Simulated scan of single mutants.
Amino acid sequence: MLWKESFRTSVDLIDAQHQELFQRVTNFLQAIKAEGQWTEKIARVKETLTFMESYVVEHFSDEEVYQQKINYPAYEEHHILHEEFKADVFKYAQKMAEANYSEEIAQEFAGKLLAWLIYHVSKEDQKIGEYARQRGAQ
Results as ranks from 00 to 15, higher is better:
residue 21 L to R: 01
residue 32 I to E: 01
residue 122 S to D: 05
residue 129 G to P: 01
residue 82 H to V: 08
residue 107 Q to A: 11
residue 1 M to N: 11
residue 52 M to S: 11
residue 72 Y to A: 06
residue 48 T to P: 01
residue 124 E to M: 09
residue 76 E to D: 14
residue 6 S to W: 05
residue 60 F to D: 03
residue 95 K to A: 15
residue 98 E to Y: 02
residue 41 K to T: 01
residue 74 A to H: 09
residue 95 K to V: 10
residue 41 K to S: 07
residue 60 F to S: 12
residue 91 K to E: 14
residue 37 Q to E: 13
residue 42 I to V: 15
residue 63 E to S: 07
residue 24 R to M: 11
residue 74 A to I: 04
residue 93 A to T: 09
residue 82 H to R: 08
residue 33 K to F: 06
residue 29 L to A: 13
residue 115 A to M: 09
residue 52 M to P: 00
residue 71 N to H: 13
residue 102 S to Y: 01
residue 58 E to N: 10
residue 56 V to F: 15
residue 93 A to L: 07
residue 113 L to T: 00
residue 88 D to Y: 09
residue 2 L to C: 05
residue 114 L to A: 07
residue 87 A to V: 06
residue 18 H to M: 08
residue 59 H to F: 07
residue 14 I to P: 01
residue 14 I to L: 14
residue 63 E to G: 05
residue 6 S to E: 13
residue 27 N to S: 14
residue 65 V to Q: 11
residue 88 D to E: 13
residue 124 E to D: 14
residue 91 K to V: 03
residue 11 V to C: 06
residue 119 Y to I: 05
residue 72 Y to S: 06
residue 1 M to R: 10
residue 36 G to S: 07
residue 109 F to C: 03
residue 128 I to Y: 00
residue 112 K to V: 01
residue 4 K to Q: 14
residue 90 F to K: 12
residue 12 D to T: 13
residue 19 Q to L: 08
residue 78 H to E: 04
residue 24 R to C: 08
residue 98 E to K: 12
residue 65 V to N: 12
residue 2 L to K: 10
residue 75 Y to C: 08
residue 98 E to N: 13
residue 22 F to I: 05
residue 46 K to C: 07
residue 65 V to G: 05
residue 59 H to T: 02
residue 3 W to R: 04
residue 23 Q to R: 14
residue 34 A to H: 02
residue 75 Y to D: 06
residue 70 I to L: 05
residue 19 Q to W: 02
residue 100 N to R: 12
residue 51 F to D: 01
